[in-house]
Simulated assay, not measured.
Amino acid sequence: MSTPNATPFTVTVDIVDERIARLTFGHPTRRNALSAALLRELDAQLVDLATRRIPVVILGSGVGQDVWSAGHDLGELVHDRDPIAHGKPLEQVLRRVRAYPGVVIAMVSGSAWGGAVDLAMSCDLVVADDSARFTMTPATIGLPYTMSGLLRFFNNMPIHVLKEMFFSAQPLDAARAERFGVINRLVDADKLEATALELARAIASKAPLAIRAVKEQLRILEDLQPMPVQAMEQIAELRRQACESADFSEGLIAFSERRPAAFGGR
């Protein structure tokens, strides 16, 4: 798939058997960046697979590449200062994955950045090879993350590891990710696809309605995080200030010029 006047991307579906599908995305000229158009196509394919009642989906961008996904296409931030807000294409896909009426397995080879880490974390299981790296980059460009996004990390890793990732933008390598439970299966690259398929077949052989019910219960339990209205308003104001700040503009310019940003806290 591609859009006019845009770099080409692909989103393909391969039905392995009647219970397993492989959903593969690619954007080679942009390091598999998650552009809005690519995300909308991912969302449409997930809707279609749900309609077809495919119990297990393996989501990935290939094996043996340096970058699994560079995250949100930062070139689009010139026109959209808050690409991770509710209702935006990335957030819509993350919600779709979490609500998918079956199991979604992330198959990760290479580094994942920013929103791509959130995409992997939103999947039910993660299978990865030794090249996998997970780097949360919002602070590098001055983008504040959302409460719902942070909650996904909060539910999946120790709080001090979460803070290290978001404060330093340093990568979490595959070994540490497995240690903290972010990765379910860590294997050599030549065994990655077979391992993901083996796990998918094990799940697909079980009762799909029972698995669907358990997944939905767990999703609801994860989302049970009551918050006072005052706290929500305070967070919304902090995010607004950051999104409208000179620091965010400087972060985007520095990224495009491939230099360190000079943040001033304003």
Rank of each mutant, 00 (worst) to 15 (best):
residue 124 D to I: 05
residue 156 N to D: 14
residue 7 T to K: 14
residue 156 N to G: 14
residue 62 G to N: 11
residue 31 R to E: 13
residue 34 L to Y: 08
residue 111 S to G: 15
residue 30 R to F: 09
residue 178 E to P: 02
residue 76 E to L: 10
residue 152 R to W: 00
residue 224 L to W: 06
residue 116 A to L: 01
residue 143 L to C: 04
residue 173 D to K: 05
residue 163 K to S: 13
residue 126 V to R: 01
residue 260 P to K: 09
residue 265 G to H: 04
residue 225 Q to L: 12
residue 236 A to I: 07
residue 245 S to W: 05
residue 43 D to L: 13
residue 1 M to L: 13
residue 40 R to N: 11
residue 59 L to T: 03
residue 249 S to M: 11
residue 139 A to N: 15
residue 49 L to M: 04
residue 159 I to L: 15
residue 55 P to I: 06
residue 92 Q to T: 15
residue 162 L to E: 11
residue 201 R to E: 13
residue 202 A to E: 15
residue 42 L to N: 02
residue 78 V to Q: 09
residue 236 A to N: 10
residue 174 A to L: 01
residue 129 D to K: 08
residue 47 V to M: 09
residue 77 L to Q: 11
residue 233 E to T: 02
residue 153 F to C: 10
residue 172 L to Q: 03
residue 129 D to Q: 05
residue 109 S to T: 10
residue 99 A to F: 00
residue 18 E to L: 07
residue 255 F to L: 10
residue 252 L to H: 00
residue 102 G to Q: 05
residue 97 V to T: 08
residue 141 I to T: 07
residue 21 A to V: 05
residue 60 G to L: 07
residue 128 A to C: 12
residue 131 S to R: 14
residue 10 T to K: 08
residue 203 I to H: 09
residue 5 N to I: 08
residue 113 W to N: 05
residue 130 D to M: 12
residue 84 I to L: 10
residue 215 K to G: 01
residue 107 M to W: 01
residue 135 T to H: 08
residue 118 D to C: 04
residue 262 A to T: 14
residue 102 G to T: 02
residue 194 A to T: 10
residue 236 A to P: 06
residue 29 T to P: 02
residue 251 G to C: 06
residue 118 D to Y: 03
residue 4 P to W: 00
residue 111 S to R: 14
residue 23 L to D: 01
residue 191 K to I: 05
residue 66 D to V: 10
residue 4 P to R: 07
residue 178 E to L: 15
residue 83 P to W: 04
residue 71 G to R: 08
residue 33 A to V: 08
residue 110 G to S: 04
residue 208 P to L: 06
residue 152 R to I: 08
residue 136 M to L: 12
residue 130 D to Y: 11
residue 155 N to W: 03
residue 263 F to V: 07
residue 234 Q to T: 13
residue 221 L to F: 00
residue 75 G to P: 02
residue 255 F to A: 11
residue 44 A to P: 11
residue 151 L to W: 09
residue 174 A to W: 07
residue 152 R to D: 04
residue 159 I to N: 05
residue 226 P to A: 01
residue 56 V to P: 03
residue 43 D to P: 07
